[in-house]
């Protein structure tokens, strides 16, 4: 048991605990915040493992961007503040989830622990340093890296178009109310509180039209 081991156990415990809380808490927003903690401490775990760059990117992208996006999404979908019983699936499904999750963990652990049994990494002479990673990305791995840029571009275009189309349609519905093609428009107006949601969202021109 080295010092690094002890540190890792500590960080890992935080990660696991916050992950557990993020999937069990009844507060919708808390779940996202616990995820934030979990991913952040995972970045710490990367640091302990000697992968500074990965840890940094984890902080930047995951904590800085993804979780923030998740929080945004929760707010845009009018997530309730405070405990909410409705966020969990029926009990039988949760039991199934627990069984399957346990099975996954058991399966992975039973295979990985023997695999890494006794394996150690000497982090004082790290095999991969940040310059090496940089060189690898722009050298060996330049092809998938370029593809990744295409993927990001396409994802942005797609996400933009998808969110925009509905905004347009909502707008179109409002403009000519007697348009016969959109029965759903009337549906959504029928049930009371959801109407409020729709109008609330669509009345924010900034959200939808942002490109």
């Amino acid at each position: 048991m080295t010092t690094r081991d002890i540190v890792f156990v500590a960080v890992g415990a935080v990660t696991a605990l916050s992950a557990l809380l993020s999937v069990t808490t009844k507060h919708v927003v808390h779940a996202a915040l616990w995820l934030l903690v979990s991913l952040g401490s995972l970045a710490g775990a990367y640091l302990v493992l000697g992968q500074e760059l990965v840890g940094l990117v984890q902080l930047l992208v995951y904590v800085g961007a993804i979780v923030v996006l998740v929080l945004f999404a929760l707010m845009l979908t009018r997530a309730p503040i405070g405990p909410h019983a409705e966020i969990d699936t029926p009990r039988w499904q949760r039991v199934a989830g627990a069984v399957l999750g346990g099975a996954t963990t058991a399966l992975l652990a039973s295979l990985l622990l023997p695999l890494f049994a006794g394996a150690t990494a000497d982090l004082d002479r790290p095999s991969t340093t940040t310059p090496q990673i940089a060189q690898a990305i722009f050298g060996t791995w330049v092809w998938p890296f370029e593809l990744l840029s295409v993927l990001l571009l396409v994802a942005l275009v797609g996400a933009f178009a998808v969110s925009r189309i509905v905004l347009q349609r909502d707008g179109a519905d409002r403009h000519d109310a007697d348009h016969p093609d959109h029965p759903d428009h009337h549906d959504s107006h029928d049930d009371g509180d959801r109407t409020a949601a729709t109008t609330a969202v669509t009345s924010e021109p900034g959200t939808g039209r942002v490109g």
Binding site: Q93, A96, L100, A103, T104
Partner: peptide
């Protein structure tokens, strides 16, 4: 969607156990 996720995960775990 929830049910499809359930069937997906049940399938994966089953297949994984079988596979191993």
């Amino acid at each position: 969607p929830s049910l499809s996720l359930l069937s997906l995960l049940v399938g994966v775990v089953l297949v994984a156990v079988l596979g191993v």
